[in-house]
Amino acid sequence: MRFVKLFFISVVIFAIVIFLISLMFPSRLVIERTGVINAPMSKVYTVANDLKGWRAWNPWMIADSVAVINFSEPASGTGAYYTWESTKPGGGSGKVTVSDSNPQKGIYYHMDFSSMKSVYSGLEMKPSTDGSGTAIHWYLETDLGWLPWWKFRGFMGDKLFGPQMEEGLNRLRTICEQP
């Protein structure tokens, strides 16, 4: 009986320690990448604004190329959206909705997932410092809340998703820099 009591006390103390450690982690996750595309801002905006064109450069649409994707009509501009249903086991489903689309600023969108926290994101654009290209800032932002497992997962967010974002920006650059 004493062993069982000690076991339960240890489990409770361990859970409290984990929770207290998680308080040191931020409850907001922001992942961001920047780059310069040697193409006019109007061209970069046109390519990035068309959700159907995201299949060519967005790393998450490429990774699950067999997902069932449905686009709104029109598939660009404020209010445009697409939904997906993965055919892979554990792939999930969700919806991406463009909340603001402005040729002078960029594209801002909201991602809702079936099994994850919502993500607010944007592709901010401005002329590069030399004026010959487009400076782009891609960010993902989500509120992780107070639960330790989300905060620990958020701690690894940049390492998990940052390289994919860099890959996506490189693909976007390749597409936009083509004559």
Rank of each mutant, 00 (worst) to 15 (best):
Pro74Ser: 06
Ser76Asn: 14
Val66Asp: 14
Asp64Ala: 07
Gly90Thr: 07
Asn38Gly: 01
Trp54Cys: 10
Lys43His: 05
Ser65Phe: 12
Pro89Trp: 01
Ser93Glu: 12
Ile31Cys: 04
Glu32Trp: 04
Trp57His: 11
Phe71Thr: 11
Thr83His: 02
Leu23Ala: 07
Ala48Pro: 00
Leu29Pro: 08
Phe25Asp: 02
Ile69Lys: 13
Val36Trp: 01
Val30Ser: 09
Ala63Gln: 14
Arg28Glu: 11
Met61Gln: 13
Thr87Ser: 10
Trp84Cys: 08
Met61Pro: 03
Gly90Leu: 01
Trp60Ser: 09
Gly77Val: 12
Phe71Asp: 05
Phe25Lys: 08
Val47His: 06
Leu29Asp: 10
Trp57Thr: 09
Leu23His: 01
Pro89Ser: 11
Ala56Trp: 13
Ile69Asn: 13
Asn70Leu: 03
Gly79Ile: 11
Thr83Asn: 07
Gly53Ile: 05
Ser27Gly: 12
Thr87Gly: 06
Ala63Ser: 14
Ser76Met: 14
Thr46Met: 02
Lys95Trp: 01
Ser72Pro: 06
Asp64Phe: 01
Lys88Ala: 09
Val68Arg: 14
Lys88Gln: 11
Ile31Trp: 00
Ala80Met: 00
Gly79Gln: 07
Trp57Glu: 09
Asn38Ser: 12
Gly79Thr: 09
Met24Ile: 07
Val36Glu: 12
Pro40Lys: 02
Val44Ile: 10
Thr83Cys: 04
Lys95Gly: 08
Ser65Asn: 13
Ser72Asp: 05
Gly53Tyr: 06
Asp64Trp: 05
Pro74Lys: 07
Tyr81Ser: 14
Lys43Pro: 04
Ile69Val: 15
Ser76Thr: 15
Val44Trp: 00
Ala56Thr: 15
Gly91Trp: 09
Gly90Met: 03
Asn38Lys: 11
Val66Gly: 09
Tyr82Ser: 01
Asp64His: 06
Gly79His: 11
Ser76Cys: 13
Arg55His: 11
Ile37Asn: 01
Val66Leu: 12
Ile69Asp: 11
Met24Trp: 04
Lys95Asn: 01
Pro89Tyr: 07
Val66Phe: 09
Ser76Val: 11
Thr83Lys: 05
